[in-house]
């Protein structure tokens, strides 16, 4: 039993999961928003509380979470026994 939730399946038979897909998407958003946030530090947008650099923070957070998911659920990853709330997610590999 692997921690891999649902195999999307490919010709190589590797376990490519929705969690990995989510990781990729969040990482793309993370890169985009971190760059936008860095630009907005120099050119603040006309929003309330712009001094808090929310775009940069959210961008960084998404990048960390996205990369975390990508690495944990990298196809053919060894780290399969992920525990969530103590309940093992054991889908078919």
């Amino acid at each position: 039993m692997a921690a891999v939730a649902v195999p999307l399946g490919d010709s190589m038979g590797r376990a490519f999961t929705v969690w990995f897909y989510i990781g990729v998407l969040l990482s793309i958003y993370g890169v985009l928003l971190t760059a936008a946030g860095a630009y907005q530090v120099l050119h603040p947008p006309a929003t309330t509380l712009a001094a808090y650099h929310a775009t940069l923070w959210v961008g960084g957070l998404l990048l960390v979470i996205g990369l975390g998911y990508m690495i944990s659920y990298w196809p053919r990853s060894k780290k399969r026994e992920i525990q969530h709330d103590g309940a093992e997610i054991d889908g078919e590999a």
């Binding site: 958003y29 946030g37 907005q40 603040p44 947008p45 309330t48 929310a54 959210v58």
Partner: peptide, 12 residues
């Protein structure tokens, strides 16, 4: 959202 989110973040 418009009040707090700048370009990029508003899109999200």
């Amino acid at each position: 959202l418009i009040r707090y989110a700048g370009p990029g973040l508003l899109g999200l």
